[in-house]
Write a protein that binds this DNA or RNA. Structure first.
Lengths: 180, 180
DNA sequence: GGATACATGTAAAGCGTTACATGATTGC
DNA sequence: GCAATCATGTAACGCTTTACATGTATCC
């Protein structure tokens, strides 16, 4: 149940219409919880029905939503609520496991491709860090957001390093098969 | 489309019935692609209908499946097939983001809890590594499986380190608010 | 023979994804 | 006025998860 809370967070920062909200999510929150406009609209409907947000009186087709006190309370409660991490699902690790059984033909190219993707994401995070965060003396709010960013940086660094090791290992001749 | 390929991989290693397959997945593959018995049965039905596996003639209620040549070919092709990584979804990072907006009450306890979970997973991986892998001179098959395990180890290490940093940061007094 | 575990499913709900539909606004 | 874009949705599908259902073997 994370998407509704992502929306509450964004709406508290600034009341928005569905599409505007989608765009704002796509500019920051999507890095650790992506959402399409269809999901956003569906959740906005549910949150309104649950009495956590309300639509502001509007002119035209745009519907602006703001968070009600009950919505803020729910978000405060959710921050402390125990919730286990989602189990890992990596099709890349699965494919290495499959390659151990049927051979690793063509796998290296795919590992290279993933390495490039993670490297690009890492650089995007580092750009954001250089642009938005100073090295020290940050306000509580900034410090928490900086922590989130550092989590992403550390995660992408892990993948790049591991892919480097995997590629080196794939390139290494097999000690038993090769030297005969 | 990863689950069917996880099942093909496990079935090539050893033909199995639905429940046995579920148990075997739960002993290794689940670390990077968990699956319940309901999912397994459904996929077995689909794979059989697609002509990738077949049920062995059996006695009793147990249905044993084995992989057909078409199934092996599909798995070989899948190993090299481009497939982007699933976008990250971390409710913990999301909650840090929410805490930046509504305050971090109760967040530290939850971070501690997650740290313990990741630490336990890390130790489980390290136990497996000590038990199943020698330091060098491994066959191609073992080297790939070792790489998978090292991926898990490095991932859990990342989370433990990051959670340590996050907890230290949360405990640190705010530079602007506090010292007045 | 009765309880327990084994084994194979069905049903339903939630979330995420892709494709499609519809009306209003804006730019030219 | 017409096209493109903005804005708000609906529909359908697949995967995951939880709960429930049903029959079979085994143990004591």
């Amino acid at each position: 149940m994370s998407l509704p809370h992502a929306i509450l967070t964004a709406l508290i920062e600034k009341p928005s219409s569905g599409l505007e909200l989608t765009r704002r999510i796509d500019k920051s929150i999507r890095y650790f919880w992506p959402a399409t406009h269809q999901q956003v609209y569906r959740e906005l409907g549910r949150l309104e029905e649950a009495g956590l947000i309300r639509a502001l009186p509007s002119s035209g087709p745009r519907k602006e939503y703001e968070v009600l006190p009950a919505g803020r309370e729910e978000l405060v409660a959710w921050v402390a609520r125990p919730e286990d991490p989602k189990p890992l699902r990596s099709s890349l690790l699965l494919r290495l496991r499959a390659a151990a059984v049927v051979g690793s033909d063509g796998l290296a190219a795919e590992l290279e491709r993933h390495r490039a993707l993670h490297q690009a994401q890492l650089e995007e995070y580092l750009d954001i860090e250089r642009r938005d965060f100073t090295p020290r003396s940050e306000a509580e709010k900034d410090r928490l957001q900086h922590l989130v960013l550092q989590g992403g940086i550390s995660l992408e660094s892990h993948w790049v390093s591991w892919l480097d090791a995997a590629l080196a290992e794939l390139a290494r001749p097999a000690p038993h098969d090769q030297p005969r």
